[in-house]
Amino acid sequence: MNPDRFDSWLKIDAKGLYCRPGGFYIDPHSAVRNAVVTHGHSDHARPGHGAVLATKETLAIMRARLGELAPRLPQEAAYGEPVSIGDVTVTLFPAGHVLGSAQVLIEYEGVRAVVSGDYKRSADPTCAPFELIPCDLFVTEATFALPVFQHGDARGEAAKLLRSVAQFPERTHVVGAYGLGKSQRLIALLRAEGYDRPIYLHGALQACCDLYESFGVALGALEPATGAKREMLKGQIVLAPPSAIADRWSRRLPDPLTSFASGWMRVRARARQQGIELPLVISDHADWRELTDTIAETGAREVWVTHGREDALLHHIRSTGRRGRALALIGREDEDQ
């Protein structure tokens, strides 16, 4: 293994990205003996692993979501605290994606590789902000890696939702939001805009909200939408998983106005295809500018792109004189849903 030849010690195999001198996978998509997990989303935190190194929050999320299939040997690591594993040193740093999300710095013989996991650099009151880690190899996500994705200020989108609630007080605003991260961020954004009425939740979102609150993220008054009186929901904001906003579940709501908080809402065809009336561009992933700025700021001489629209990002990386490589990891979904 030659530390300067990254692909001699960081390998892709059927289970995912493997660090040979450390003997562990990072976010493997099937069960392994040793893993480092960047964050709790289900396409990164898979069931059935043996030993898992992750932040306290990520381990708590895995326990809540995976039950008996949560890691058998959880090992907590605080942000910035180096941990020796085999011949490498691993340190987690905040990724700014969701509660507990981390970038993984792996140091091997003086060479530094950072695996970003999913990240964003815009403000989010519900998780620790992204920290820039200089490195030689940067392994980045590419969910929104096209120049058309430039996520504006999320506060403006929360204000847009509240304007619509004021303009259409007889309709129920049902907002599709991913259960882990997006829901809590949206609630926090609404609270920051001064919205203090109860926010109603689809049953599937309750557990993650409870977890956030147990880690000290205040979300204000939350009520279950399932079982609430139909008349009571008129004019209220209801959060639900994206799959439920325009399906049988939402029929219980009086005159629902469907909204969706996602980075994909930037593209009109995406919103129209899903019948969204009020698209909210709120993303928990880096946009084009954040991706390209971060790549430049890390000083990495080589960049690997894990999943997303890698064509455009590789074109950009190569045009700035760096080496770029697409990892084409399997098992990653169209994220930010």
């Binding site: 096209l146 120049p147 058309v148 593209v267 009109r268 065809a269 629209r309 064509d311 455009a312 074109h315 950009h316």
Partner: peptide, 12 residues
């Protein structure tokens, strides 16, 4: 190149 990839994705 970036414009073409973007145009293909957005469709308009």
């Amino acid at each position: 190149v970036l414009f073409r990839l973007s145009r293909d994705y957005v469709g308009d």
